[in-house]
């Protein structure tokens, strides 16, 4: 029958996966987080980071910031799927829609004495981490920045007596004066 050579450009899934930061404005109502998380797990998408909090008390809106990876076709699907959830107001792909800033906050507990303790404090200074709790043999640092910086700081603390880490996940906004 009419077997014919394939046009290789026709299917997109061969494209490479990349990381995207997606900002979603939603009604702050019960179940909304379950809807979003259920969508990701049910359809087999990745979540690398997810943050959520109410951001507009007057309109009762929350902002969910999701970092996910996928091919362009998958990312397009993720956005379309999010957008069709009824309580979702807006979906923006910050990664493709121009420059944006991302921040993450971590609390980092380090235990140690002597040189290690001094070195931890010195590095904290370099990373502009704040000491928010101190005992004679421990510190809790608060460090903010993009995920790379936070990760690097935590990595360095590993050698200096890292005990515990709490991370917020990423929040992000576009640069400039425009709202989402």
């Amino acid at each position: 029958m009419n077997a014919a050579p394939l046009n290789p450009g026709q299917l997109a899934p061969h494209q490479a996966a990349s990381s995207h930061t997606i900002s979603v404005l939603v009604d702050n109502e019960p179940g909304i987080l379950a809807r979003v998380v259920g969508l990701f797990s049910g359809r087999g998408y990745n979540i690398e980071s997810l943050t959520v909090a109410q951001t507009d008390p007057r309109e009762n809106l929350s902002r969910i910031t999701i970092v996910t990876t996928g091919t362009p076709m998958i990312i397009e699907q993720i956005k379309a799927q999010l957008d069709r959830l009824v309580p979702v107001h807006r979906v923006r792909d910050l990664t493709v829609e121009g420059p944006h800033i991302e921040r993450e906050l971590a609390l980092v507990k380090v235990k140690g004495t002597g040189d290690k303790r001094v070195e931890a404090l010195r590095l904290a200074d370099v990373f502009r981490a704040k000491v928010i709790d101190a005992k004679t043999d421990s510190f809790v640092f608060e460090v903010t920045g993009n995920s790379d910086k936070v990760q690097t700081f935590i990595g360095l603390m590993e050698e200096l007596g890292l005990v515990d880490v709490g991370r917020t996940g990423i929040v992000a906004l576009s640069r400039g004066g425009e709202a989402l």
């Binding site: 046009n7 299917l11 997109a12």
Partner: peptide, 26 residues
């Protein structure tokens, strides 16, 4: 088989649900 689905056509897709578009076929 997706890789051999209508390989030489230009495809127009009218759909009310953006998530139906480019889901399986570009």
């Amino acid at each position: 088989k997706l890789a051999e689905f209508s390989p030489r056509s230009k495809k127009i897709h009218v759909d009310i649900d953006p998530s139906s578009i480019n889901k399986n076929v570009h």
